[in-house]
Nucleic acid binder design. Structure first.
Lengths: 335, 335
DNA sequence: CTGAAAGCGCTTACAG
DNA sequence: CTGAAAGCGCTTACAG
C-alpha cells in the first residue's frame, strides 16, 4: 500500500470511513474514545489527513484563487505596484485561509489552457489589453472574476481608480504654465515597442488603463499638441533610453504614468543638469514609498487595497464594487 | 443545470462520456466528425472543458507545486533574493506547464493545516528554522520536497551553497588586516530581536544558513573575539538602527550576511563620513544586480538557479542534487 | 473508432 | 454517537 487512504484507516480501526472523516472535519461529533483510536491508527499507518484534491472535488470548493499576470512571472516580483497589489491579495488569502495560485501568461497558445485548468474558485486578472483571450476564458467559467484596472467586461468586476479623472487633475498640476507638455506612457499594446509619437489617437492604445489616462490628459490639454513617449515597460532603468529621446525634444513638463517612469525622468534630468521643476516639471502615478522620499508629485492610490478588494471578489464576496480612491499628491517636482 | 458536465455533453451528443474525454485529452483517437459534433455541443451548452479538480483526482496529479515561505507573503515580493529565487521557480513552472502555489506561513497554528491541504504534487520550502513544524508535515506527505538553504532533514533534498565554506573564504577577504572585525547577521530565530552580541554560540542560531555562515567566520577567526549585530530582517532601511549601534563600536571590517545588509552598512558609513574600505571594509552575500553597481565584495550565488533546481525536485526530478555554486567576488569595498 | 465500467478519495444528508 | 450509500466529475485499461 502506498499512501494510506481514509478507507484504510477506517478498516483498520473497525469504524466507517465517515467516522474517520468526521474526526477531521467535525471532531465534536465523534465520541472521544473513538476519536482517540482513529488518531492512533492514523498515526500508526502514516495517514496524514484527507486528500486535498478529493476533498475539493467533493466539496466543490478549492480554497484557492488564481491570479493571472500577463507577464513573465519574474515581473510580479520586480514591479513595485504589482508587488503591492499581490501583497494585498496575499493578506486576504491569509485571513481566509485561502491558497494563492500564480498564473503567468505571455500571450503563448497554452495560456488559455493553463488558466482554465487551474483548480481555483475565482480569478484575479491583473490589468491587460482589451482583446486578451484570457478574459473570455475566465468569464465563461462560472467563477467570480476580478480585474484590476481593466478592461471592463461582462461577467467580471473591475477594481480601479478613475484613471481618466485622475489624469485630468494631474495634468492640471503638472502642465500648469507649461508650453511644451509631454507624456511618458506605459506601452500601448503587447508589442511594447518604445517610440515617440505626437498626440497618438486613443484608439491605438490596447491597455484600457493607459488609454484612460491619455484621454484624461487630452481632456485637460484640449486640442493642443503633446509629445508622448512610450516606454517598453514599467522599469526605471529600461526607460532611460526613451526618456533621453524625449528630453532631447526639450519638454518643460513630463507626466509619467508611474512613479518608476517618473524616476527615470528625474534620473535623466539630473544627468543633464536640468532643474526640477524649474526647467522641467515631473509627475507620476501610484505614490509608492519611494515617491515621498523623492518629493514626487503623483497620483496616490493603494494598490494594496485594490489587491484586497480583488481577492474578496474572487473569493465570492458579493457586495458592490467600491471604486478605488485616488488623490493627486502635489510635492516638489511640479510648479 | 448550473455548470454542464462532461456527461451532459455526452448525453446531448449521443456519445459516451469517454469519447468526450478523448476529445479533450487525445483528440486524435476520435473521428473528426465526432470531434466536431462534440465541440459544437460543448460550445452550445457552455461546457469549457474537463473540471480541473476532478481531473487531478483521477490522474493523481495536480500539476502544481507549493512554495512555503516562512514569512508574511509581502516578503516574497519585497526581499530581493527571495524574488530571484521565485523567478527561477516560476520559470520552470512555465516550462513544465505547472502551477505555482504560494503558501505563506507565520508560525501560527493553522500553518500546518494550510500547508497540508494545498493541492500540489511537491513542495519547496524556503529556508527556515531547524524546528519548523512545517518540515515534519511536508516530509510525511509522500511528495517530493526541496528545501532552499536548509535545514537538511530526512525525506527532503536541500539546494544550497556551502555556506560555511563561503563564509570562511569571505572572512579571509573581508577581515584581511582587520583588528576589529564585526558581523551583521540575519536573525537567529523567529523572534527576530535585533541585538549586539560578542561571539554568540552557534547553538543559539535556529536558522541553519545563518549558523553555517557564523561557523565559517569562526573557522577563519580562530578564537578571537568578534562583535555580531543581529538584524531583524533582510531589509536595508530597517537595519539602519542596529547598524548604527554596530558602527558606534568602531569596527574596521563588517561582514554582512546579504547585499541588502551590506548596503545598510555602506549607507551608515557614508552618513558618518567613514571611508570604505580604508576606515571600514564591507562585504555581503548574493551578488544581486545592485552589488555590482555598488562595487560590493560579496559571495556570488544564483538564487534564480537554485529556484530552478528546487522546482525540478518538487516536480519529481530524481537526479542527484547538485550543490549550488558560489564564488567570492572581490570588488572595491574590501582591502 | 467507440463504449461499459470501475474507481480516484473523499463528504454529506439522511437514518437509526 | 455511528453507518450505508450516493455522488463530486473525470480518466483509463480493456474490450470490441
Amino acid at each position: 500500500m502506498s499512501r494510506p487512504t481514509m478507507a484504510d484507516v477506517a478498516r483498520r480501526c473497525g469504524v466507517s470511513a465517515m467516522t474517520v472523516s468526521y474526526c477531521y472535519n467535525q471532531p465534536d461529533r465523534v465520541a472521544p474514545e473513538t476519536r482517540r483510536r482513529v488518531r492512533e491508527v492514523a498515526a500508526e499507518l502514516g495517514y496524514r489527513g484527507p486528500d486535498p484534491t478529493a476533498r475539493s472535488l467533493r466539496r466543490r470548493h478549492n480554497g484557492a484563487i488564481g491570479v493571472v499576470l500577463g507577464e513573465h512571472l519574474a515581473y510580479a516580483f520586480e514591479d513595485p505596484p504589482a508587488r503591492r497589489f499581490l501583497a494585498g491579495v496575499a493578506q486576504v488569502c491569509r485571513e481566509r485561509g485561502s491558497g494563492l495560485n500564480l498564473i503567468p501568461t505571455t500571450g503563448a497558445d497554452d495560456d488559455v489552457e493553463r488558466v482554465r485548468s487551474a483548480s481555483v474558485d475565482g480569478y484575479i486578472v491583473w490589468t491587460t489589453v482589451d482583446t486578451d483571450p484570457v478574459l473570455d476564458v475566465v468569464r465563461g467559467l462560472g467563477k467570480p472574476v476580478a480585474i484590476q484596472g481593466g478592461p471592463a467586461v461582462d461577467g467580471a468586476r473591475v477594481v480601479s481608480i478613475d484613471n481618466r479623472a485622475s489624469a485630468r487633475e494631474l495634468a492640471a498640476r503638472t502642465f500648469a504654465g507649461s508650453a511644451r507638455p509631454a507624456v511618458l506612457s506605459f506601452p500601448f499594446d503587447r508589442d511594447r515597442r518604445p517610440r515617440l509619437e505626437t498626440r497618438p489617437a486613443p484608439e491605438e492604445v490596447a491597455f484600457p488603463v493607459t488609454r484612460a489616462r491619455l484621454l484624461g490628459i487630452y481632456d485637460h490639454l484640449g486640442p493642443s499638441e503633446v509629445l508622448v513617449a512610450v516606454a517598453a515597460r514599467n522599469d526605471r532603468s529600461e526607460a532611460a533610453e526613451i526618456v533621453d529621446a524625449l528630453l532631447d525634444t526639450g519638454p518643460d513638463a513630463v507626466m509619467a504614468m508611474s512613479d518608476q517612469l517618473a524616476f527615470a525622468v528625474l534620473d535623466a534630468a539630473r544627468r543633464r543638469g536640468l532643474r526640477v521643476p524649474e526647467d522641467v516639471a515631473v509627475s507620476g502615478w501610484d505614490d509608492g514609498p519611494a515617491a515621498e522620499r523623492a518629493g514626487l508629485t503623483t497620483v496616490a492610490q493603494s494598490l494594496f487595497d485594490q489587491g484586497r478588494d480583488c481577492a474578496l471578489i474572487a473569493l465570492g464576496d458579493r457586495g458592490p464594487v467600491r471604486v478605488a480612491e485616488w488623490k493627486a499628491t502635489v510635492r516638489a517636482t511640479t510648479r
